[in-house]
């Protein structure tokens, strides 16, 4: 897997976790059932995201930040040859590669990074 794609996946998962903790249902579950200190957890996640961001090329960082700050997911799966960010078909040659995750593919339509689940 492409190193930056791996970092992006991790960053997005952390962003999702962070956003979820800011919402009522997940926040209540995590603090109620698991006794999680929410404010401390949010800070820890924030710091980790920043640390990971530093591993990306500036242009990749910019794209990621732009997508995330617009409230979008930055990395989306490609399932059945379709980008799950904009639901437009991706070039079939991409998916035909031995491991399409070895390259950092960007959707030509919506600009999101692509991930091919196994």
């Amino acid at each position: 897997m492409h190193e930056e794609l791996e970092t992006l996946l991790e960053m997005q998962d952390l962003h999702m976790q962070l956003r979820a903790l800011e919402e009522g249902e997940v926040r209540d579950l995590e603090s109620g059932l698991f006794d999680m200190g929410i404010e401390e957890a949010l800070e820890t996640l924030d710091q980790k995201i920043l640390e990971l961001q530093g591993r990306l090329e500036p242009r990749v960082q910019d794209r990621y930040r732009r997508l995330i700050s617009a409230g979008n997911r930055a990395v989306v799966p490609v399932l059945g040859g379709v980008c799950y960010g904009c639901f437009v078909a991706v070039p079939t040659s991409w998916a035909a590669e031995a491991d399409p995750n070895d390259k950092l593919n960007v959707c030509q339509n919506c600009g999101r990074f692509h991930y091919y689940p196994t």
Binding site: L9, Q17, L33, F34, E40, A41, L45, V76, Y115
Partner: peptide, 24 residues
Amino acid sequence: RRENLGSTGIGRGIAIPHCRSLVV
């Protein structure tokens, strides 16, 4: 990472590790 934010061991010998990820 989720465990580092607080253990998912809820007591009585039970743990419920959980997370969301694009890899599934």
